[in-house]
Nucleic acid binder design. Structure first.
Length: 585
RNA sequence: GCGCCCGUAGCUCAAUGGAUAGAGCACCGGCCUUCUAAGCCGUAGGUUGCAGGUUCGACCCCUGCCGGGCGCGCCA
């Protein structure tokens, strides 16, 4: 629907350009959405279906009063009558567009015809986007926060796909570094314990139950083969802990990744690729990336300035020189070290190499979904990408805030120490994929989220997931009723849809494609849940106040056509979220 | 101390620089013999944390405060 208005305004601009009033490139810029004026949805209903501020923005440039320019533009646009759009000048110089009722009703067959494609577009065509998300460390099971990131990333990918982008989903496995050694030692500790030997907990270890399970599985596979390694670990002096054997580490990582994959599958999330951090270390990727940076003068040896406002321990303040990345040149607060004291790369160095690799794979755009606790890394990774590619804004980072589990209004304590750790698996088992997926998207990703386990399970209209799915089921149930009553199938006369509720419902259906585009471009999946809530409310309101299966076959046919269109849009919206649209409930 | 995010109705949150800032809960008042029932309709509720600035126009952008969260060399 929006395209119709954009077309009208573009033609008007072109004609005014032909008359020499406006620069010719304006119309092109406008049609490509790069102009600083636009077509938008007025908040106020009486202002019509669409509005443009073109005259307001351009008035200064041509030295006219906004309303006078609006008059010229209006006159230059094709007569609205034959396209079913009435235009008028209002307020300080807006041009408002009102769709005729017939034009609105015309959307119903259009939706019917486009079916599952309604809402999809090509505005992102030609873009190749890599969405990296979850990337939970393979050191333990996924918690609910990971789940939120997982759903957010998956739906961003779905949205980008819906606007015509070529999308790939990737999971970055942090299978290198000190944390992995901690995991290996934790397993060996439990391994001794399970074998009934003397066991001493290492000073740093993962306390979760799952580590015991890993140890048991390891015993089942390898018996006592790892006893020497475990013993030497037990006898080691703190501070000089040995590196656990690769065989144990690999076993543990595979075990945890299997769990993670199971959880992801339970949420119907599939990745196109799994990128192992180890391959960067082993394959020389880090050296390549650092050499590339070095060649362009982004690296130097230097002493780090101490962070302000924070005490540095004597150990830290050793005054040694580091290999540093000049991220301050690109807006970061401080230059960043790339090698640890022992000469091995920092996590950041690996991350640089990883993102370098992404850029070299030819993506036109990168999207990362991270937990908000990694917010401090955004600038430096973006700086690194800019330094390596010369391209600014190649990477968008979406940060997801905490999830609070609640039950009966009370917060569910998640504490690894107290053993009341609630995993994503627990929540999935309790409420199911649909509830989890929908719920995680009910707030903007930057806002904290309360997940009410009781409400998410309940079959009541207070449960937003139920409310939306039920709207779809209701639409479908009318189909069944129609057959049960053996009512004749009549196309119906759409002109009989004259009630304000009916026309408003159609208007809402018409906003779906814009909503999808906006959500995709801004990487804001929560817009979909908000939209679906509104749509479901409008549908339920219509259903409650009007008898769809009216006596009059013409009315009945028309209302059923509208109901089918609404059901279709709800289904398409839910599909974007990866949530099922039940036919009955 | 610095950086990022946040501050909007009693609560939880929306609102690509647009016109009179919106939902859902909760509260209050009506209604409920109907295609699916766990309800339906409506009222009220606001100096958008504070103070300036930018402009035709600011919840949105800029500056400075106040308050909360996260992060802040060789953990990932």
């Amino acid at each position: 629907m929006r395209e119709i208005v954009v077309g009208l305004v573009t033609q008007g601009l072109e004609r005014l350009a032909g008359e020499g009033l406006l620069p010719g490139e304006l119309a092109t810029a406008f049609a490509q959405r790069s102009a600083d004026f636009k077509v938008e949805r007025p908040r106020e209903k009486s202002h019509g279906d669409f509005s443009t501020n073109a005259a307001l923005v351009l008035a200064r440039m041509v030295g006219m009063k906004p309303r006078d320019l609006a008059q010229r533009l209006l006159a230059a646009m094709p007569g609205g009558e034959d396209v079913g759009v009435r235009c008028e000048i209002a307020g300080p110089g807006f041009i408002n567009f009102h769709f005729s009722e017939d034009r609105l009703r015309g959307l119903i067959p259009e939706i019917r015809q486009r079916g599952a494609d309604y809402g999809r577009s090509r505005v992102g065509a030609g873009q190749r986007v890599l969405v990296e998300f979850v990337s939970a460390n393979p050191t333990g099971p996924m918690h609910v926060g990971h789940g939120r990131g997982a759903v957010t990333g998956d739906v961003i990918a779905r949205l980008l796909d819906a606007i015509g982008c070529t999308v790939a989903r990737e999971y970055y496995i942090n299978d290198a570094g000190a944390q992995i050694d901690v995991l290996g030692r934790s397993v060996l500790y439990r391994y001794l314990e399970c074998l009934g030997r003397d066991a001493v907990a290492p000073e740093d270890y993962y306390p979760g139950e799952y580590v015991i399970e890993i140890a048991r599985a390891l015993i089942e596979r390898d018996g006592e083969a790892w006893l020497p390694a475990a013993e030497s670990l037990r006898q080691a002096v703190p501070g000089e802990l040995p590196k656990p054997p690769v065989g144990v580490i690999d076993f543990a990582i595979e075990w945890v990744m299997r769990e993670i994959r199971t959880d992801l599958e339970a949420m119907h999330i599939h990745f196109d690729s799994w990128f192992s951090e180890r391959t960067l270390h082993a394959g020389g990727g880090i050296e390549r990336a650092l050499a590339h940076l070095s060649a362009h003068d982004w690296l130097y040896e230097g002493v780090l300035e101490p962070p302000k406002g924070r005490e540095v321990t004597p150990e830290e303040a050793d005054g040694r020189t580091h290999l540093l990345f000049r991220s301050t040149r690109l807006g970061d607060d401080s230059d960043r070290p790339l090698l640890k004291a022992d000469g091995t790369p920092t996590y950041f160095a690996a991350d640089i190499a990883y993102h370098f690799d992404k850029a070299r794979r030819g993506f036109t755009r990168l999207v990362d979904v991270w937990g908000a606790d990694h917010g401090g890394y955004v600038k430096r990774v973006q700086a690194a990408l800019e330094a390596m590619t010369g391209e600014k804004d190649l990477l968008d980072v979406v940060l997801t805030q905490m999830v609070n589990l609640t039950q009966g209004g009370k917060q569910v304590r998640m504490s690894k120490r107290a053993g009341t750790f609630v995993t994503l698996r627990d929540v999935l088992d309790e409420t199911g994929s649909d509830a989890v997926r929908y719920w995680f998207l009910m707030r903007s990703s930057g806002a904290g989220l309360d997940f009410d386990l009781d409400l998410a399970k309940s079959k009541s209209n207070d449960n937003p997931v139920f409310y939306v799915q039920y709207a779809h089921a209701r639409a479908c149930s009318l189909e069944v009723k129609l057959k049960e009553r053996e009512l004749p199938e009549v196309a119906g006369d759409l002109a009989r849809l004259t009630a304000a509720e009916e026309l408003d419902l159609i208007r809402l259906l018409g906003m779906f494609p814009e909503m999808v585009e906006g959500a995709a471009l801004s990487r804001e999946p929560h817009r979909v849940t908000y939209y679906l809530s509104d749509l479901a409310a409008a549908f339920h309101g219509y259903y409650n106040n009007y008898r769809i299966l009216d006596e009059d076959p013409e009315v009945r046919g028309a209302r059923m056509a509208l109901v089918r269109a609404a059901g279709r849009v709800i289904a398409n919206g839910l599909s974007l979220l990866g949530v099922t649209a039940p036919v009955s409930m």
